[in-house]
């Protein structure tokens, strides 16, 4: 039996990364760098529309892909910023890249923070460690639309002063009147003048009007339970507390199964969930 075969070009391929050029690299800490990337194809760059809280798959051929949340604000078009910790093969390979090098991007993927719903409200953002990366996008987005929001409070905890990300910007922001920013570290050194201890300790210093406040949390998995408890103590509604989960998002389009959390997939149903949704997700918190 002879069988005809043919090779079909793959149209609209969601697995094909778009080439992007690294246009800036800033060393934030010994482990983290901030990369600015621009999609090379004009049409792809113009079509790239995202929300704070969404992520991309960073694709380095020969190494693989890794999900990275976007740190820049949707209000800034034409480029994206990724804050990347050297913690695996793809992120390690990224740390060896130089300005001008080309990598691949797929996305944006997932559901971000409900920016439109948050407008007209007070905002309480709580970050731990690298969890500041997606929240930085939200913070900058709020900044660019600052008049649309009430009181904005940012609580950010790090292990040590040298691990505080975006420290230069945050040092300046500590003096701003339109953002209440409180930094804390677990292990202070002699230079540290800010708060010490876990981020949950800072809730004593915060006044919350539960009727008009949205919360957003991102940090290491152990942090969520305790921060949510503090927000609940302030009588905030479960469906106004938003959390962003880190899972192993691999395909980004709800197929490969790696980012399952309870009955959902973090890559299409999240990674941002409100606490009511998260309460109904097994293994989430």
């Amino acid at each position: 039996m002879t069988v005809p075969t043919y090779a079909a070009p793959v149209a609209a391929n969601p697995y094909r990364p778009s080439p992007a050029r690294i246009t800036s690299i800033i060393d934030l800490t010994p482990q983290e760098k901030l990369f600015e990337l621009r999609l090379i194809d004009d049409a792809a760059r113009e079509a790239f529309d995202f929300e704070s809280g969404q992520f991309v798959e960073l694709s380095i051929f020969g190494v693989g892909e890794a999900p990275i949340s976007i740190s820049s604000a949707p209000s800034k078009q034409g480029f994206i910023e990724l804050c990347i910790r050297d913690s695996g093969d793809v992120t390690g390979a990224m740390h060896k890249k130089r300005c001008g090098d080309i990598v691949g991007l797929r996305g944006p993927f997932g559901r971000g923070f409900p920016f439109a719903d948050m407008k007209g409200h007070d905002i309480l953002l709580v970050a731990g460690g690298l969890g500041i990366a997606p929240l930085k996008s939200l913070i900058n987005h709020i900044h660019d639309d600052r008049h649309e929001f009430g009181k904005v409070t940012i609580l950010y905890g790090s292990r040590t002063p040298s691990e505080v990300l975006f420290r230069r910007q945050f040092d300046m922001w500590q003096h701003r009147e339109d953002f209440d920013l409180i930094l804390t570290v677990d292990q202070p050194d002699e230079t540290w003048t800010g708060e010490t201890g876990l981020v949950t300790k800072l809730f004593d210093k915060v006044d919350v009007d539960p009727a008009s406040t949205y919360g957003a949390i991102c940090g290491p998995p152990v942090m969520y339970k305790y921060v949510i408890a503090e927000m609940r103590k302030k009588a905030m509604d479960a469906d106004r507390i938003y959390v962003s989960f880190e899972r192993r998002m691999k395909c980004g389009i709800g197929k490969c199964g790696h980012c399952g959390v309870g009955h959902q997939y973090a890559c299409i149903d999240g990674p941002v969930f409100n606490y009511w949704e998260a309460m109904n997700l097994q293994e989430a918190i």
């Binding site: 020969g62 190494v63 093969d89 390690g92 390979a93």
Partner: peptide, 9 residues
């Protein structure tokens, strides 16, 4: 060997 040369895990 590829992984060694690329410095991967």
């Amino acid at each position: 060997l590829s992984r060694v040369l690329l410095g991967l895990s």
